[in-house]
């Protein structure tokens, strides 16, 4: 936030310097090192042109569809579960330990089970993304409910609010920024998971593109795929940041 206040002119010098430094270092390194190991800017640009006119959009699209499907399904389970756990003590105490444990299982460790259970097609990848999403969203939504400011509940109760009003007017709005924060982190993890999964078992997607390019030593292609990943991650993260700020999530704590 504090960065937003800076003027463009102030940023141009340090940013330009860094970018210039990086690119010259990159060019220099690629001339000294075998370009098969470390492609220079020109090689990467040619790879980009080749991929852009070819399969890049298709690979990106496949990965994005997998991520979004799993992410939406995971959130659809995680948000209500988090609301229930945050609001009803018995449910929280029943499930808290279990959810907390599952949260620490790296989703990619489930890949062998996912393939055995759901085959090598789309379903196993979507399952892995659901697994990456659901626990983080649950835990953060639950946090949002659990840390509702007590006086806000009391204030509406003193206006005649029943349990449903308390939920609708206080608990739900308080939980939204937390749920969004969970979703934002989950989205980052979903990118990691899908890339790994596609590298291991897939015939399409950005992860597949990376792995395929490695096997054929097309290092220029690898660079292009990495940049595409970075841009996608950046874009989705911004969307969530804007949403969180919109819903007043200044006090959100990452769990």
């Amino acid at each position: 936030m504090r960065r937003a206040a800076w003027k463009v002119s102030e940023l141009a010098l340090p940013y330009g310097l860094t970018v210039l430094l990086l690119v010259s270092l990159w060019e220099f390194a690629s001339r000294r090192i075998n370009p098969l190991f470390f492609p220079g800017p020109t090689t990467v640009w040619r790879s980009f042109l080749a991929l852009a006119s070819g399969d890049l959009a298709a690979h990106v699209g496949v990965s994005l569809v997998r991520i979004l499907t799993g992410f939406l399904l995971g959130s659809l389970v995680g948000i209500p579960l988090g609301l229930l756990m945050g609001g009803i003590p018995v449910i929280r105490r029943l499930l808290d330990g279990t959810v907390e444990f599952f949260r620490f299982i790296p989703p990619i460790a489930m890949i062998v089970l996912a393939v055995v259970w759901f085959g090598t097609g789309e379903a196993s990848k979507v399952f892995l993304i659901i697994f990456s999403t659901v626990f983080l969203v649950t835990v953060n939504t639950e946090d949002g409910v659990y840390h509702v400011v007590r006086n806000r509940i009391r204030a509406v109760q003193a206006m005649g609010a029943g349990p449903w009003d308390v939920f609708r007017l206080v608990i739900l709005p308080s939980a939204v920024p937390h749920a969004l924060t969970g979703m934002r982190i989950a989205m980052g993890n979903a990118f990691s998971t899908i890339v790994s999964a596609e590298m291991i078992v897939a015939d399409r997607g950005i992860g597949f593109l990376l792995q395929d390019s490695r096997l054929f030593l097309r290092t220029g292609h690898i660079f292009v795929a990495l940049v595409a990943l970075g841009l996608l991650g950046f874009a989705t993260d911004r969307v969530f940041r804007i949403l969180i700020a919109r819903f007043g999530g200044e006090y959100v704590v990452v769990r």
Binding site: G160, L169, F247
Partner: peptide
């Protein structure tokens, strides 16, 4: 009606007008 000591009972996601209208809406 209860008026609390701090300001933490106001809903930060609602405008002043919407905070006032909480009771009538309930």
């Amino acid at each position: 009606g209860v008026i609390f000591q701090g300001d933490d009972s106001l809903m930060p996601w609602l405008t002043a007008r919407d905070n006032i209208l909480l009771g009538p809406r309930i």
